[in-house]
Design a binder for these strands. Structure first.
Lengths: 227, 227
DNA sequence: AGTCTTTGCGCAATCGCTTGTTCGCGCGAA
DNA sequence: TTCGCGCGAACAAGCGATTGCGCAAAGACT
């Protein structure tokens, strides 16, 4: 029996941020309430552990100490929650990539920094990365084009990477006998897939992962002359 | 409600089943019938597309042109199906790795061949690889230790890889400043994760993928001297 | 060869359970 | 009084799984 008034998360007593104009029914990025943001964060933790489909609204609610129905005062569907997690991630990722490209370094330096950016998003955006790997196909198969921006953004990011690889080949900084698109995919996958086993606070941090990967990516595992 | 007619899957190990081929293998459960094998294949195709959890028994049945209940004449649970898919894959994988190791080549050659083996399983075992990525945690969380062999086998495979990397470092064939375990994980992940976008019959086959990856892995993307 | 019995495998109906979602209600703070 | 936000109960849909039944093919026996 668990009744009584055990409101765990009754915080948020400060500055309710009352913005006018945006009624609670905004398309994707809803109004800004601290309570809501907190719930998204709790949900994201679960998504990071099990993916989107495998996480139930009852689990999210329990994590917040409320009942599942109460979640619907903040979100009009489970999809809305994951939508918010994904857009936040992609916005952050793309803007970080752009910042690197704006520095206009040589291709190898730029690509190294892009690898660092990618690994750098591993900790703050674990949930989104997990979801994109586990539930990509499912989200795209949903009725409506709600998650079509996933494909669009992915294509934009691919263009950024491929352009740098091509530039590197053009000036002889990178070998010309490799497939640019395939190389991009393998780099991307290698980075994102680490969320499966990476845990913050372990033997290695994300910066060390990035350094390790950059070393192997450009110079390879072998010693001596290149083949 | 006890019935004298309880047939279920009691025993069933004494099925003679001659009818051309299909060696009977009494593994964890079930006898070998052609019909059954066919159903496993249909289920595997669905697992390869959506993972295990996301595939329903009704979808599997529909793919076979029967009703979901009829599946239970062949399997006593949905888990049994995926179990069969996974053990078949892991048995094949480990024995292929062993065959490579038995050749006792130098570490670099051995590792190259192991990469080829891994990519070589991509097409015949798409379903298993997809499931291991999507549903690994879920399967391990199931009651009983039914899927504990996943962890055991993974550890065995990791040992194979790490040993070869270490041997390569010991004889100076591979650089000594890289983390062996981390390197193994990145190679493994890079290979398996390609099931997400690889489609047979496309621009590249798995052999080309393997060659490309081996090139980058050992010699890197850069030109000129190593850092 | 003909008959009887067993067996494999499908259907149809249904079970208990979980899923995402809805809704009326009450309560404390603004 | 209004409003944000929780409860509690319920909903339809879908899940994995069970069971009784019928039928056709396969064996077994005379």
């Amino acid at each position: 029996m668990e009744d009584v008034n055990t409101r765990k998360n009754s915080g948020a007593a400060t500055t309710p941020v009352r913005r006018q104009g945006t009624t609670k029914r905004a398309a994707s990025s809803g109004s800004a309430s601290e309570r809501r943001d907190h719930l998204v964060k709790l949900a994201a933790d679960l998504f990071a552990r099990k993916g989107f489909q495998a996480t139930t609204v009852r689990e999210i609610a329990e994590e917040a100490g409320i009942l599942s129905g109460s979640l619907y005062h903040h979100f009009d569907s489970k999809e809305t929650i994951v939508d918010e997690v994904l857009t936040t991630f992609l916005d952050d990722l793309v803007s970080r990539y752009r910042a690197v490209l704006d520095r206009r370094d040589d291709p190898r330096t730029t690509l190294s920094e892009m690898v660092r950016v990618a690994f750098g998003t591993l900790e703050p955006h674990r949930a989104a990365i997990t979801v994109m790997q586990n539930d990509w196909n499912y989200l795209l198969s949903l009725p409506g084009d709600r998650f079509a921006y996933l494909v669009r953004t992915e294509e934009e990011v691919e263009r950024m990477w491929v352009e740098q690889i091509e530039r590197g080949q053009a000036i002889g900084q990178l070998r010309g006998d490799i497939d640019t698109k395939l190389t991009y995919r393998m780099v991307r996958d290698s980075v994102w897939v680490t969320v499966r086993w990476f845990r913050p606070g372990g033997r290695l941090n994300t910066a060390a992962l990035a350094d390790h990967y950059i070393t192997v990516l450009f110079d390879g595992l072998a010693t001596g002359e290149r083949a």
